[in-house]
Design a protein around this nucleic acid. Structure first.
Lengths: 189, 189
DNA sequence: TCGGAGTGGAACACGGGCGTTCCATTTCGG
DNA sequence: CCGAAATGGAACGCCCGTGTTCCACTCCGA
């Protein structure tokens, strides 16, 4: 982890760099560090002072993303209500992650295995959520957990790209997202 | 376009390069050209002989992708049956595009405006397809055309990534994809 | 068998991002 | 008000991908 004893100034700068990196590298993972520095309103030298190598910065972003993902998952209270209701709340919370999603998508191949392990607890609760949904009739039993996971992420991707190109309000996009997601998982008559 | 008078040998090499480029650059648009050359089983020199600059290769891939996309769209016979049935066929055809999808996804921000214009005709038939579905009650009228477009692409993305990580058969993945897509667009009771 | 087409490898200069060092400047707490 | 902390800019060497040139090799048809 990061040095626990850190000046308020340094903590602020570090956060600004992380935020800028999530935004810039989320759009293009190959973007030069100078762009990240500019976006963070910081000199390139300073950036290297906090994260000596590019890989260090990437690691920090991954960690930050996992943390935000975990918090969002907790807020969704996956153990309450029917499976479908819990999944709906999860979608709402993830939707609010914004730029973090950008990064997770572009990294979707590389943010694998070891990275998701720290996130493992949330994975488990997702699994139980789906099984509860299969049992209580709110989620189509033909759809396996891992597939629903893919669908959830792809819906969020659709939401983000649609919002970017259509200019619709966040609220309206979220409404459409939840509608199609709920329809997708509903059992067939 | 490409020189119409071309040796059989040259045509074969050119095609091998295009195929390799779609695969390699589809996974990582920033991949070095040497990787593309290796994948095409061709020397880097030869690659430059066909496509002098990187941008030339990109252009060629875009053109090829648009062509395959158009053919797939035609095969789907969008004017037949209900709106939902036509959308289902379109999903099936796009699903078979495989590697081309990879490239279209990674390029989704850059394959915009001007590029889609050549593809314009298909866009129009998609629009009429959706409107027919709104009318015949097979597609939820609350879902606008552009949103359905986003959903279709995101479902294909989900299908591809799921197939890659789950090891399920193509057929089974397609089944899941169609099931969730049809559920997502169905009108609510 | 000869000659041209097609190819691949070696080598080069160029550009740009990266990581580092050094130094001047600004900021802030004591 | 002074000194340490934090920052930004300039400059450098390094690596790697790019685009080019030159030459040797192979394959094939005339």
């Amino acid at each position: 982890m990061v040095d626990t004893q850190e000046t308020a100034s340094r903590a602020r700068t570090r956060q600004a760099i992380i935020d800028a990196a999530i935004t810039v590298l989320g759009k293009n993972l190959s973007a030069p560090l100078s762009e990240v520095a500019t976006a963070a309103d910081v000199g390139r030298t300073t950036l290297h002072r906090y994260y000596p190598e590019r890989s260090d910065l990437i690691k920090a972003i991954k960690a930050e993303s996992v943390v935000r993902l975990q918090r969002a998952t907790e807020r969704a209270r996956l153990h309450e209500g029917t499976g479908a209701e819990a999944l709906r709340r999860l979608c709402e919370e993830y939707f609010e992650l914004g730029n973090v999603l950008n990064f997770i998508f572009s990294e979707h191949q590389f943010l694998t295995e070891a990275d998701w392990c720290e996130f493992g607890a949330a994975e488990d609760s997702f699994e139980t959520l789906v099984e509860r949904g299969h049992g209580d009739g709110s989620i189509d039993p033909d759809l396996p957990t891992s597939w629903l996971e893919s669908v959830l992420w792809s819906q969020l991707y659709a939401a983000w790209s649609y919002a970017a190109e259509s200019g619709e309000s966040r609220h309206q996009v979220l409404r459409l997202t939840l509608r199609t997601l709920m329809g997708a998982i509903a059992p067939r008559p």
